[in-house]
Simulated scan of single mutants.
Amino acid sequence: MEVDVLKLGADKSGAASLNEEVFGLEPRKDLLHRYVVWQLARRQAGTHKTKERGEVAGSTKKIVRQKGSGGARHGNKKAPQFRGGGKAHGPRVRSHAFDLPKKVRRLALRHALSAKQGAGELIVIDEAKLDAPKTSELASKLKAHDLKSALIMDVSFDENFSKAAKNLDGIDILPVAGTNVYDILKHDKLVLTKAAVEGLEARLLGTAKEGAAA
């Protein structure tokens, strides 16, 4: 499919061809959901922890005799029902990550890109470069395209563009190597350079080595 290529902050500067297998699929919500759940699970630190009965400080002496006290039978004061006792079945340090096949991850990325293209939320620009690291200049260029919440992707970013984009609320930049479904979907617009389009197509069609973030 043919799409217009814009010059950042200006009008059309040409055209580009998008591969139907990457940008022309009918989005599947189940695939997108599986990928996002997998991605967010990997982000969880899993460092939440409470002390259990065997970890709290205290004596292990039996506090009352087993029978004849007229009260309940207890062992020691480290039991969960006592103040200062251990937490029963509390959270433990663990990893929340689980496996998701590479083929599924790659397919989900293609469906995420197709969803943006199908919704008219994909913009292709010729390049993402600035002559100076000026946030005001980049903000002005983005305003020309009405970009308030956008993810800008390129194969690599020059230092000036990266510095200018850091101070813009709602604007994020991401190299092709870090492509992921969550960041694509959470922004209103997806902005790709021509180099990013080529890189994504090569990666998702199996002609490039699968990245670590996919």
Rank of each mutant, 00 (worst) to 15 (best):
D4Q: 15
L6H: 11
E20Y: 06
E21V: 07
V22E: 01
F23D: 08
P27W: 08
P27N: 08
L31Q: 10
V37Q: 14
V37K: 13
R43C: 11
H48C: 10
T50D: 11
E52N: 14
E55I: 04
I63P: 00
Q66K: 12
S69K: 01
G71W: 08
H74G: 10
H74D: 10
G75M: 12
F82H: 04
G85D: 04
K87F: 13
H89Y: 14
P91R: 09
R92G: 06
V93A: 07
A97F: 10
F98C: 02
F98Q: 00
L107R: 11
A108H: 06
L109P: 04
S114L: 04
Q117H: 14
L122F: 01
L122M: 07
L122W: 01
A128R: 01
K129V: 09
K129G: 00
P133T: 03
P133W: 00
S136P: 04
S140T: 14
L142D: 01
L142S: 07
A144V: 13
H145F: 09
L147A: 12
A150V: 10
A150C: 07
I152A: 02
D154I: 05
V155D: 12
V155A: 14
V155R: 12
S156D: 13
D158R: 00
D158V: 02
N160I: 01
A164N: 07
L168C: 00
D172W: 06
D172C: 03
L174M: 15
T179I: 15
T179S: 15
D183C: 06
D183M: 05
K186M: 09
H187K: 11
D188H: 13
K189S: 12
L192Y: 04
E198M: 00
G199I: 02
L200T: 03
T207I: 03
T207A: 09
E210P: 11
G211V: 14
